[in-house]
Structure formats: C-alpha cells, structure tokens
C-alpha cells in the first residue's frame, strides 16, 4: 500500500494554506474550524484546485509537482480524472438525473452489484437521489467513490449533512468501513470527536497551517495550544499563575483560585476537559483541589451525557447524576476538578 504525500502551498484570500502531511494506510482527520482551509487541501489532492507550489504524490506516482527552482519540464499537474481518488463531497453531490445504480456505475461499472449490496442500497438501485434519506445518500456517495477503485479516499465533512440521530449510527458504520478498506484516507471535519472516533491520527489545522498532529488520545491529553484545547471541547479559564509549593496556583480573572500540576508563571490559560469536572451540591471532601461554585447557568442533554455549566465551567455528567442531585438552572452547585486534570498554556 502506497502512502499519500502532501506538501503544498496554496494562497487563499486571507492566508496561505501551507501544509505537509503523509497519510499511510490509515485514516487521518484534518480538524479545524470553518474556513481553516481543510476542504482546500482535499480539493488540491483531488486535482480540483491547483496549489501554487509543492508536491502531491501517491507512492512514486506524482500527481502534482511544482517547485519554484525546478525546470518547467519537471512540473506536473494531473487532471482530476487521472488521479485515483475517491472523493465524497459534503452534500454528497449525487447526480440528480441518474438513478442510484447509474450514479454508482458512473465511477466504474465492474463492481456495481457488489457495491450496491455491500452498502445495502440494492433495493434503491432504480431510485433517484432526490427520494433518498440522508443516510442512504451517504451510502450511495461512498459506493460511487469506491466504484472507481481509488487508491486514496477523501471525505469532506462526511457526517455534516446528516441529522443528529442518523449521525451516530452512520459514524459507527463509517469507522468500520474505513478500517476494513485499509486505504490512505484523509477526512475533513470541524468536530474533534468525530475525528477522534473515525481517525487513527488527527491533524489540527488553523488558518491553513497544521498546529498539532497525533493520535486522538494524545491530542486530547496534551493539546499543543489553547486553540487545540478549545477545539477538543475543553474549558478554558484565564488567570495569572504563580508557583505554590509543588504546584501552580492560578488566580482566575473571576477572583477564584485553582491549582494545577503543570508548572507555569505569568498569564496563562487553564484547560480542563468537561468529563474531568464533577458536580456536587456542596463542596465535597474528596481528592479534588479545585472547587468553583455558582448557580447552574445551563443544563442540557447531549446524547447520553448532560452538560452542566457552573461558574464558567462546563461539566459532563450522566443524566442519572443530574437527576440524583436535583440540578436545575439557577440552583447553587459546586464544580470540582483535580489539579492533575488541568493543562496550562502561557497566554499568547
């Protein structure tokens, strides 16, 4: 299996996309906020956009090469139809005038029946895309992309067009599929958790540049910057740090003090993941050093978790716990977390 090598510079209106990344037989997720240049990278790999300079290659097959010093004859830019990519578009881009079968066959006729069965869309073969549900459309789009026998799979926000219920079911299926395919896969998402579930590695991108690449659990445990931390959904608190015995004490802008096992001094951001925060009705006598009290500002369920916001901190607890504590908006509560659960970043 050949690896996909990307090393490109591509000017955008407000910044340049400058990115070097190698994707082996694995799924890499490009994660970043909207407008960070993620889709541009996918389009460049597919040949729909031409980088200003750089290299895109699959093994020793060069798809794009344009290095400023090189002679003109050394420049390459293959048309999209000559690159063995399967690109699944965000809104799936199914051809509305063709049936499901014709859509899949458009990519390649050899494996149509097998793909229709494999993606459980054989009963829809004669239907047009307009009549399908979101999940069905996504399966058609995947089948169509694979019909070409691609050597690289590109997925642009593969779950964004689905409603929340379908999304979690499809996410599991997609993960299974990607693992089974064993193709170099580059997927783009703005949702860190989607990336963490689907990908072997995540590459966090901001304003066209990679800020951290690593296994999802590494990025989650050691975010390289407050930006990455907030992308992973962590709470960020601002304050001034000073040494306090073996620990660091941070006097938050709200006036409260918290402690961290990370060492830092001066102005810092404190990052705490929501599942590291527990909620009680009074200050608990447990091992947590940090307690922030205040009224419950918001309380809502996300899947089987309940997100509770107390004193600027968001905690994720189970619905059962929330019920047991009798939490309600406006009621006083205490949010607690251990000093070991915090990460400090010098404030930039």
């Amino acid at each position: 299996m050949e690896a996909l090598r990307i090393d490109i510079t591509l000017p955008r209106r407000s910044f340049d996309v400058e990115l070097a990344l190698e994707v082996g037989r694995e799924t890499v997720a490009l994660v970043g906020p909207n407008g960070a240049g993620k889709s541009t990278v996918l389009r460049a790999v597919a040949g729909l956009e031409r980088p200003e300079r750089g290299v895109i290659a699959l093994g020793d097959e060069v798809w794009f090469e344009d290095i400023p010093a090189s002679p003109r004859s050394a420049r390459t830019c293959l048309d999209p139809d000559r690159r063995a990519v399967g690109l699944v578009f965000q809104e799936y881009a199914l051809f509305p005038h063709l049936t499901v079968r014709q859509n899949v066959a458009y990519g390649g006729k050899a494996r149509v029946d097998e793909l229709l069965r494999r993606f459980r869309i054989d009963h829809l073969a004669g239907a047009r895309p307009g009549t399908l549900s979101g999940g069905e459309r996504q399966r058609v789009a995947l089948a169509r992309a694979l019909a070409r026998d691609p050597k690289v799979l590109l997925l642009d926000e593969p779950l964004a067009a689905l409603d929340a219920q379908t999304r979690s079911a499809v996410r599991g299926e997609l993960h299974e599929l990607l693992t089974g395919l064993g193709l170099p896969t580059l997927l783009v998402t703005h949702d860190f958790f989607e990336a963490a579930i689907l990908a072997d590695r995540v590459a966090v991108i901001s304003d066209g540049r990679l800020v951290q690449v690593g296994r999802p659990e590494e990025v989650l445990a050691r975010p390289a910057s407050p930006f990455v931390a907030s992308l992973t959904g962590a709470n960020l608190l601002l304050g001034n740090a000073r040494p306090h015995r073996e620990l660091t004490e941070i006097v938050l802008d709200s006036g409260a003090s918290v402690f961290s096992t990370d060492l830092a001094a001066g102005r810092v951001s404190v990052a705490i993941q929501p599942w590291e925060v527990s909620i009680a009705r009074g200050a608990p006598a447990d091992s947590s050093l940090n307690h922030v009290s205040g009224p419950v500002l918001s309380l809502f369920a996300v899947g089987n978790r309940t997100r509770v916001t107390v004193g600027g901190l968001t905690a994720e607890i189970t619905g059962e716990s929330a019920a047991r504590l009798g939490l309600a908006e406006g009621e006083e509560a205490v949010a607690s977390f251990k000093a070991t659960a915090t990460r400090l970043f010098p404030y930039a």
């Binding site: 389009r43 597919a46 040949g47 729909l48 048309d79 999209p80 139809d81 690159r83 990519v85 399967g86 690109l87 578009f89 809104e91 881009a93 199914l94 051809f95 509305p96 458009y106 990519g107 390649g108 169509r144 992309a145 019909a147 070409r148």
Partner: peptide, 15 residues
C-alpha cells in the same frame, strides 16, 4: 448547473 456535480464527475474519472 451545480459546479460541485461537475467536480464530482471529474473525480469519478470522467474527462
């Protein structure tokens, strides 16, 4: 005609 459909066609190997 949605340009995304044209892009999709190109990435599916059509000139």
């Amino acid at each position: 005609v949605d340009p995304v459909l044209v892009d999709a066609s190109r990435t599916l190997g059509a000139g």
